[in-house]
C-alpha cells in the first residue's frame, strides 16, 4: 500500500544464483525419491536413486541456508524498507494459508469417509446398495476395525481403548497430554516474544529453550504413540482407512512440528547471537506464526481424530 515510507527505495536484489540451484536441488531430491520408491515397490536393487536424492537434498538444504543467511544479512545492513518488510509479512501469511488448505484436504477426506462413504459401504441410505453387492457382511463403524475385505487390508487388533469423557480417562490419555504440551508451548513462545519486545534477552532465551524442549517432548510422545499403534493395536498404514487417515493426518502434523521445532531451534540460536531487535524481528514472528498454526492444527486433530 502506498504510505509515507514509499519514498524509500524498495530493495530489488542483484542477480542471485540461489533460485536456479535450489531448483536443481529440488529436482534431484524428488527424482531420486521417485526412483527409491519405485525400486522398493518393484523390488529392484537401488540404481543410484538414493544418492541422487541425498545429493539433491544436500544441495537444496545448503542453498536454502545460504539464502536465508543472505536475507538476514541484507536486513542487518539496513536494506529492507518498511515496505519490503510488509512483503515478507504478506508472503508468510499466505504461505500459512496454503498450509491450512493442505491440511483441509486430509481433514476433508476424513470427514467424507466417516460421515458418507463408510456408512454407504455398510448399507446405509440410498447409496447403501453398493455395500450390499460388494461386501454384504460389512458393518460400518468408526474407528473402522473390520475392513470390507480383510484379505487385502489386514484388520487392526481388537481392543482399541474405548473413549469416555471422564477426567480419569483423559488423565491417562497420551494425546490429551500432547495437547497440553503443544498449547503450553504456544504460550511459552508468546512469553518469549513478550521478552523479546521488552529487550529481556535472558528471559527470551529461557522461554525459547522451554518451547523447543516442549516441541521435542511432543515429538517423543508422538513417536511412542506410533510404536503403540503399530505394535499393540495393529493400526498401520496398510490396515485400512482408519490407519490411512490417522497416520497421514497425524504424520503430516508431526512432520510440521519437526520442521517447526527446527525453525524454533534456529530462532533460539539467533536469539543467543542477538539477531533480533524489539522493533525488527520478523524472522522470529514468522516462526511464531508457523508454530501457532501447527498448534491450531493439532487442536483440530485432537477433536476430530482422537475425541469424536
Amino acid at each position: 500500500m502506498a504510505s509515507e515510507s514509499s519514498h524509500e527505495t524498495y530493495y530489488v536484489p542483484e542477480q542471485s544464483k540461489f533460485p536456479f540451484f535450489a531448483s536443481i536441488g529440488l529436482f534431484l531430491t524428488v527424482y531420486g525419491l521417485g526412483g527409491v520408491l519405485n525400486d522398493i515397490t518393484a523390488g529392484v536393487s537401488v540404481t543410484g536413486s538414493t544418492w541422487t536424492a541425498l545429493i539433491g537434498f544436500t544441495i537444496l538444504s545448503f542453498i536454502l541456508f545460504q539464502w536465508f543467511a543472505t536475507t538476514i544479512r541484507e536486513n542487518h545492513a539496513g536494506l529492507n524498507s518498511a515496505q519490503l518488510k510488509r512483503s515478507y509479512v504478506w508472503g508468510m501469511s499466505w504461505f500459512i494459508f496454503s498450509e491450512v488448505m493442505f491440511f483441509a484436504a486430509f481433514f476433508g477426506a476424513l470427514f467424507y469417509v466417516r460421515t458418507l462413504s463408510v456408512p454407504w459401504l455398510g448399507g446405509e441410505g440410498e447409496k447403501g446398495s453398493a455395500g450390499e453387492f460388494l461386501w454384504p457382511e460389512f458393518q460400518a463403524a468408526w474407528p473402522l476395525l473390520v475392513n470390507p475385505d480383510p484379505s487385502i487390508y489386514q484388520n487392526p487388533n481388537d481392543g482399541l481403548n474405548v473413549k469416555s469423557w471422564s477426567p480419569a480417562f483423559f488423565a491417562g490419555y497420551l494425546p490429551f497430554w500432547n495437547t497440553v504440551i503443544l498449547i503450553t508451548s504456544s504460550v511459552t513462545l508468546h512469553f518469549a516474544h513478550v521478552a523479546l519486545k521488552a529487550e529481556n534477552r535472558k528471559r527470551l532465551i529461557q522461554w525459547m529453550f522451554v518451547t523447543v524442549g516442549l516441541g521435542v517432548i511432543f515429538l517423543g510422545l508422538q513417536a511412542l504413540e506410533y510404536v503403540e499403534a503399530y505394535g499393540h493395536y495393529g493400526i498401520t498404514l496398510d490396515s485400512g482407512i482408519y490407519g490411512s487417515t490417522f497416520f497421514l493426518l497425524t504424520g503430516f502434523h508431526g512432520f510440521h512440528v519437526t520442521l517447526g521445532t527446527f525453525i524454533l531451534l534456529v530462532m533460539l540460536i539467533r536469539c543467543i547471537k542477538g539477531h533480533f531487535r524489539p522493533n525488527d524481528h520478523f524472522g522470529f514472528e514468522a516462526a511464531a506464526w508457523y508454530w501457532h498454526f501447527v498448534d491450531v492444527v493439532w487442536v483440530g486433530l485432537f477433536i476430530f481424530v482422537y475425541c469424536i
Partner: peptide
C-alpha cells in the same frame, strides 16, 4: 493406504 480403495474402507 486405502484412501481410494473401498476394500479398505
Amino acid at each position: 493406504t486405502a484412501f481410494f480403495d473401498a476394500a479398505g474402507g
